[in-house]
Amino acid sequence: MTARMSISHRISGVLLMAGSVVFALWLITAAFRPAYFDMMMALVNTKIGTLAMFGFSFLLYYHMCNGIRHMFWDMGFLFKLKNAAIANWVVLLSAAGLTFVTWKCVCEYM
């Protein structure tokens, strides 16, 4: 479990890089190609686009929570197997919770 969390951190990092390229294009099109900007906004509003955004948000929160756990490791905490196992679930549930709250806000207020 802890090993899978570790490799997931890297995989999520690489996927977030791919996502960041899309967000970069979003910004660049906004500045230089307004027509493409509108197209990208339309793409995000499709089902696949929304699913991609949902996935990106979860990966982002996961990478952030697991990154915070890595900082605890750097400080010398959470190394005991039992604590590391608990931290796995804290990280996963926090990421899921943050994703849920974000999308609840998106659905209700945005």
Partner: peptide
């Protein structure tokens, strides 16, 4: 990103 959902250019 949330605030810009569905925003125009």
């Amino acid at each position: 990103v949330m605030a810009m959902k569905g925003a125009s250019h």
